[in-house]
Nucleic acid binder design. Structure first.
Lengths: 234, 234
DNA sequence: GAGGAACTGGAGGATGTCGTCCACTTGCGT
DNA sequence: ACGCAAGTGGACGACATCCTCCAGTTCCTC
């Protein structure tokens, strides 16, 4: 009876899902460490490196984030939001063409600044709800951005929204190939791509992939849960 | 004294470096198997998979090709020659612009057709002599191809030869990201890139990487001998 | 301040890959 | 025919990474 009266109905402020304070502190450390390590070394680093950086045991990390996918989602939630926001901002830009170009550059720059994010952007994580929400939002806004730029007569009419992920894949290719050795090369690629998007340059293009195909491609190798299944046959 | 008179001074025909015939047969099988497996699964497949496909023990494979790099070089020697030849053929094309475009498409198509070659083309293997000769030849011819297309007023003046490897890196990005799920997407990327190369479309571009930088980038992770050195520090 | 639930770290079994080593086999010269 | 150098295959030790499991610790509640 009295239990409802305890003076602690509000205090559960910053605890995520009722974690004990020490546990929550560790969770934070883990996410921070993951962000750093992923940014430096990509999504494939050994989990133990992250645990070490966070100063916790692997057991702790695994209990909180049982799969790599979940950890990735947690680590990049913020960046995904920033990503969605960038799209919104691009829409705020008065000049439609400027908005479009600025957007492409900006997103590619985000890729360039974080080795893990490079991959995340060309991949899909069905499990991560908030994550996907941001992505969907961004995609919807991007659609408008594209229409606007086409209407202004600046963006070629045969540009499709699927071209953007394709550009990101291309950019990812340059980024991974050049690494630290030639870290600004991507800018030039993006320069080429943007100029190719100009309506004035337009010549016919090969067909884009069906959206469904591209989605499937982005799903490939999607660190989900208990992955690693596929293998061994013959 | 008589030994010089033995009736077998010529017969050493197809033996490579005086291998015993059975050994040479195995060598062939290994190279063939490597070609197949690399094409299907990329350069990072376990060596044992190749040995298995070739029907030989790993020991045999390792004796003949002690490092992955050497095996890769042997497996792709032919393709590298074909690559060099493609450049030559592009020069034979009477229309300079046609020659240039056809070349870019062709090389990118070669990448698309072989998962291993995708990587090989954006990488450098200092150890593989014949290999490098082809690459150098191709590069020299490409230079001419570019000049010719520029002179014809079709190729933008600020195109530099380093842009080609950059395109290949971008293409590689799309190829690896799309895989079998959307296997024609690369064509569209190449369409964009080529149109961006047209002189008429030209707007200023960010600077290209210094040749030396790019070279360094292509050298990264270059399955050389006794690689794996770098690691462990902190 | 005591009891128990929540949480912790890291040892350790499982798996996959590498590259070596060596007892056995085989082609080839005589 | 024979002998041996050349060649062979695959077991094996080393290592990296994964993920689980649990004895011990820490926080929270009453």
């Amino acid at each position: 009876m009295v239990m409802c009266m305890t003076p602690s109905p509000a205090p559960r402020t910053s605890r995520e899902a009722g974690l004990r304070v020490d546990a929550e502190r560790n969770r934070q450390r883990i996410v921070t460490a993951a962000r750093e390590v992923f940014a430096e070394s990509g999504l494939e680093v050994p989990i133990e490196d992250i645990a070490k950086r966070a100063g916790v045991g692997v057991g702790t990390l695994y209990r909180r984030y049982p799969t790599r996918g979940e950890l990735i989602a947690a680590a990049f939630e913020d960046k995904m939001t920033a990503y969605a926001e960038a799209t919104r901002q691009a829409l705020a830009e008065p000049d439609p063409w400027q908005g479009f170009c600025g957007y492409v550059e900006k997103i590619c720059a985000m890729q360039a600044g974080d080795r893990g994010f490079t991959t995340v952007l060309t991949m899909t994580f069905p499990m991560a709800k908030r994550f996907e929400a941001d992505r969907d939002q961004a995609f919807a806004d991007f659609k408008v951005l594209v229409e606007r730029a086409k209407a202004a007569g600046k963006l070629r009419a045969d540009f499709v929204t699927e071209d953007m992920p394709m550009f990101l894949m291309a950019n990812a290719g340059v980024l991974t190939a050049t690494g630290d050795a030639a870290p600004d090369t991507w800018r030039r690629l993006v320069g080429y791509l943007i100029q190719a998007c100009a309506a004035q340059a337009a010549q016919p293009l090969p067909d884009p992939p069906a959206p469904r195909q591209l989605y499937k491609a982005m799903l490939r190798a999607t660190w989900q849960q208990r992955e690693r299944r596929a293998r061994k046959e013959k």
